[in-house]
Design a protein around this nucleic acid. Structure first.
Lengths: 163, 163
DNA sequence: TGACAATAGTTGTTGGAACGAGTATCGTCG
DNA sequence: CGACGATACTCGTTCCAACAACTATTGTCA
């Protein structure tokens, strides 16, 4: 055994491949950043995913979105979209309607209360994201975004709103 | 209202700030890449987190790690580390011992069955990571890793194994 | 040395995520 | 126009994650 092997590079022991290291870094970073996010939204009895649904509905406002159409715009996959919307509807944040033209679908629209809540959240959310990533330069952020997009590129369905 | 405002940049409508866009990209990328990971490990009745525990125990082998010491090396936070280890112990993959010198702690060590399972997993895992991120160049991977480390830097406790 | 704080896990409970099976509605093709 | 497949959810169940309360052990300081 060569002498210089007595101090194996920390990374060489820790990861099996550069790709693994990259994935675990994505996972770890998500896990750390999520803490801020969770802390913010639990003060408003929202999950991050619920907030995102509201954010997407606001972008569509005053138009509505069909349930599954909304689901595929969400950041994270949501098989239980129905129950997620149930909770928002129970709080009066969204409105649901089964249109006569196609009674299979359920159209979702953000309501006034929902818009008001988002307005209330605007500043805290901005602050939260500043705490999360405010220490990076604009250039670093842009670079990170570009690299992440390339990283997940092959894993996005064509035509999705997240391509 | 200026005429060119009729087509707001898609991104401007979609995100409230560059920091938010970066965070949501991390989240989205994690969510997409995780799909491959889940698909692989469920064939072996493991969760990604369980696999990571085994990986870390292998790196320590033949030494052992105290429970909470192992927990803080995990990629994602694990308040239910006890039950995670319960499952691994029930399958005979790890061994637990309460040392006489400090009977508060429980020392965890990977067993032969655990090492054997990891060996069996080595190739599938490598293939999985290649599917996940094999389309990126080494340079891109290195850049991504560096940026992610900077991104979560302020959110890592000093002295942790993930700094 | 005896009380009290700190450490190290463990367990109870509760809510959300995932998967698959089930239901209602619609399109289409013979 | 009626059966059959496709669409768009909805619901039942099961498992995992998170938080907090609890137990056991050790360290420390009056």
């Amino acid at each position: 055994m060569p002498v210089f092997a007595r101090r194996p590079a920390r990374r060489a022991r820790q990861f099996d491949s550069l790709e693994q290291e990259a994935f675990l870094n994505v996972w770890r970073t998500y896990d750390r950043l999520r803490i801020e996010e969770d802390r913010l939204f639990e003060r408003f009895d929202l999950s991050p995913q619920q907030y995102n649904a509201l954010r997407i509905l606001r972008a569509a406002h005053p138009r509505s979105l069909a349930t599954l159409n909304l689901a595929e715009k969400l950041v994270s996959r949501a098989p239980d979209i129905t129950r997620l919307l149930d909770k928002l509807a129970r709080r009066g944040l969204i409105e649901r309607e089964r249109p006569e033209t196609n009674r299979r679908t359920v159209e979702i629209r953000i309501g006034d209360a929902g818009l008001k809540l988002l307005e209330e959240l605007a500043e805290p959310v901005r602050e939260c994201h500043a705490r999360q990533l405010g220490h990076l330069s604009r250039k670093q952020l842009a670079q990170l975004i570009a690299l992440l997009r390339e990283a997940r590129g092959p894993h996005e369905e064509a035509g999705g709103s997240w391509g």
